[in-house]
Amino acid sequence: MSSIKPRVKVPKEVSIDEIIEIKTLIRHPMHSGRMKDNNGQIIPRQIINSFSAKFNGKEVFQMDLEPSISTNPFIVFQYKVKESGTFDFEWIDDNGEKYYISKEMTVS
């Protein structure tokens, strides 16, 4: 599962005070604990339950996910640019497994 590579789209060149849109997508089955497999056995719950975005080390956005979120969670949010820096995105699943990705952003 650790081979999962999240995808994030952050504009590379931005200007100050611009509100940018950040799109994130991660491949994850998000088993809600209600689906059954081909043999009629319930697939145990296995979801990503938390997502957070940090900018230069400070948390700017956090989201708690529940089983009602679709497979391959797709999250979009906005951010107001103040300075150049790095975004750190983190997803945590029920097993405590963490998925990371970082993105650079430069103010032009």
């Binding site: 509100i19 900018f55 089983p67 679709s70 797709f74 999250i75 949010f77 906005q78 103040k82």
Partner: peptide
């Protein structure tokens, strides 16, 4: 810091 209160996701 987010500048606007807007987000999107996909749900079941």
């Amino acid at each position: 810091e987010m500048g606007s209160c807007s987000a999107a996701t996909r749900m079941r």
